[in-house]
Amino acid sequence: MLSTLQNPRQAAAQLLNFGLILSTAFMMWKGLSVLADSPSPIVVVLSGSMEPAFQRGDLLFLWNRNFFEETKVGEIVVYNVKGKDIPIVHRLVRKFGVGDDAKLLTKGDNNVADDTELYARGQDYIERKDIIGSVVAYIPFVGYVTILLSEHPWLKTVMLGIMGLVVVLQRE
């Protein structure tokens, strides 16, 4: 046991390997981010306000470029509200005007009322710049693990512990 600790070359190689995996994942995430022009190209659904289309834990792929046409009514967009750090996934139901100044209103399919209440105080509409992407693709359930991790923080500790043990105990 702990033989790796006595072999610095092997330990270093393992550390490098671990770093490589981390940096590959990070590069892929950032690459996708550049491609989609979105700070967060993949999001996990956190609420049931778009049910039955999206349930909690579903994975959404976002696209934030307007090659052929403007973001239009009916699209499902992810937007940020000033002063709130959790982005919201809802459908665009109204659009007044064109271009960057267009006034946009959103609503969750499963909500009775539109989102005016969710916006900042005194804000009646959002703008194109508040949107971080439109939903283009969907994979169910895969993101549920992140919800589990954020709702049960002790799981993070357990996972880190297991990963650390594996790294230390692995012989090769």
Binding site: P52, V73, R94, F96
Partner: peptide
């Protein structure tokens, strides 16, 4: 003359 304003007046979900 472009249709620059659009608002949803009715919707439904067909599962």
């Amino acid at each position: 003359s472009e249709l620059t304003n659009e608002a949803v007046i009715w919707d439904t979900i067909i599962t």
